[in-house]
Amino acid sequence: MAAGEPGASGGYCFRFLPQRTFASLSAPETTGRLRQWSMLGRIKAQAFGFDQTFRAYRKEEFVLAFFKDPNVIANLELLSDSSGQWMTLGTEVKNVEATGVPCTQLSMSFFNRLYDENIVRDTGHIIKCLDSFCDPFPISDELRKVLLDEDSEKYEVFSKPDRDEFLFCLFKHLCLGGSLCQYEDVLGPYLETAKLLYKDLVRILLACATLQQGVTNRRFRILLWILSSVMLTFCTIALVWGRCLDVLLFYLYLLCFIIFVF
């Protein structure tokens, strides 16, 4: 299907955007850490665009249309559990479950509680604990206990809404790493890498929100997070910013009117 033609489902037409790269994933400081955490070559970000207005109440229809679009089927890459190689989706998805992932956190102070609750020392060193196991992850420090062990007394340091935040999901993914992960003794590298990736992945939504004013066919890009199975998460922060901009423009018009009249 050529770009610009009506979509096969729900009126949505998706375009693969190979020119949109994510510098945070190729930065030297990031690649070195991903290699240490056994994640280099096993984490990827791709961008797709679409030309219809996104409605949050129609998210299931939107996501299903995404996975049925020929441009997505031919270009969306997934990591095969069996071969460990990247492969394209290659077929239509019959059923989907769409889950909104909030991106409300705008500061890394979100993780200061790790210091306050004696999970990380003031020096940044992660406090060790007796070895245990949470399949398939070994737990040898208080940080992984907070991330994985629901029976831990400090698990509630992060509430359910906190754990749903994309920033937390990204941080957790980096901390747990791959099958041959060499864990860090200090918190800094995890926070720094999560911040780089988060800013790179989320800012595109803010840019699209600021450019949507005065455009008849609003154009957004969605954020995909693909793990071992097909799981799509996308952020509605663009809609929130869009509403804020609508209000701001209203007051700017009102101010110009007052200045003109008086």
Score class of each variant (00 low, 15 high):
residue 108 M to P: 05
residue 190 Y to I: 02
residue 172 K to Q: 10
residue 159 S to Q: 00
residue 255 L to T: 14
residue 257 F to H: 09
residue 235 C to G: 13
residue 175 C to K: 06
residue 21 T to N: 06
residue 112 N to W: 00
residue 232 L to E: 11
residue 13 C to G: 11
residue 158 F to K: 01
residue 194 A to G: 06
residue 66 F to A: 06
residue 63 V to A: 15
residue 189 P to H: 06
residue 143 L to H: 02
residue 108 M to R: 15
residue 79 L to Q: 13
residue 121 R to E: 10
residue 44 K to P: 04
residue 124 G to V: 05
residue 233 T to L: 06
residue 202 V to R: 10
residue 66 F to T: 08
residue 154 K to C: 01
residue 7 G to H: 10
residue 216 T to E: 13
residue 19 Q to T: 11
residue 35 R to F: 08
residue 239 L to A: 09
residue 172 K to W: 03
residue 106 L to S: 12
residue 117 E to N: 14
residue 170 L to F: 12
residue 31 T to V: 07
residue 212 Q to M: 15
residue 210 T to F: 07
residue 153 E to V: 10
residue 207 A to D: 15
residue 239 L to E: 05
residue 242 G to Q: 03
residue 87 M to A: 12
residue 94 K to Y: 00
residue 47 A to D: 06
residue 258 I to E: 04
residue 144 R to M: 06
residue 91 T to W: 08
residue 163 R to M: 03
residue 96 V to F: 11
residue 147 L to C: 07
residue 79 L to T: 06
residue 254 L to M: 07
residue 134 C to L: 05
residue 222 I to G: 00
residue 2 A to S: 02
residue 253 Y to C: 08
residue 163 R to V: 01
residue 64 L to S: 11
residue 110 F to Q: 11
residue 226 I to D: 15
residue 161 P to K: 02
residue 73 I to Y: 10
residue 154 K to S: 03
residue 70 P to V: 11
residue 80 S to P: 02
residue 60 E to N: 11
residue 42 R to V: 02
residue 211 L to M: 14
residue 50 F to C: 03
residue 165 E to Y: 04
residue 247 V to Y: 10
residue 62 F to N: 07
residue 31 T to L: 02
residue 131 D to Q: 08
residue 148 L to T: 12
residue 14 F to E: 04
residue 126 I to G: 01
residue 80 S to Q: 13
residue 149 D to S: 00
residue 51 D to R: 12
residue 106 L to V: 12
residue 108 M to V: 11
residue 222 I to D: 09
residue 188 G to K: 11
residue 85 Q to R: 15
residue 116 D to W: 05
residue 114 L to N: 08
residue 169 C to G: 14
residue 88 T to N: 03
residue 223 L to H: 15
residue 39 M to H: 11
residue 150 E to D: 03
residue 8 A to M: 05
residue 64 L to G: 04
residue 185 D to T: 12
residue 56 A to R: 14
residue 60 E to V: 03
residue 155 Y to C: 00
residue 137 F to C: 09
residue 228 S to T: 14
residue 74 A to D: 10
residue 33 R to Y: 10
residue 116 D to S: 09
residue 4 G to M: 07
residue 116 D to G: 03
residue 240 V to R: 15
residue 255 L to V: 14
residue 125 H to F: 14
residue 126 I to F: 08
residue 92 E to W: 06
residue 71 N to W: 12
residue 35 R to E: 15
residue 69 D to Y: 10
residue 252 L to F: 13
residue 51 D to L: 04
residue 96 V to G: 05
residue 220 F to M: 15
residue 207 A to M: 13
residue 213 Q to G: 08
residue 65 A to D: 14
residue 29 E to C: 00
residue 249 L to Y: 14
residue 182 Q to F: 05
residue 71 N to I: 11
residue 74 A to N: 13
residue 158 F to N: 03
residue 138 P to G: 09
residue 143 L to N: 00
residue 161 P to F: 00
residue 261 V to F: 08
residue 6 P to Q: 13
residue 72 V to Y: 00
residue 166 F to L: 07
residue 233 T to Q: 09
residue 248 L to M: 02
residue 85 Q to M: 14
residue 126 I to D: 02
residue 202 V to H: 07
residue 90 G to P: 05
residue 72 V to Q: 11
residue 171 F to R: 00
residue 173 H to I: 02
residue 5 E to H: 07
residue 108 M to E: 06
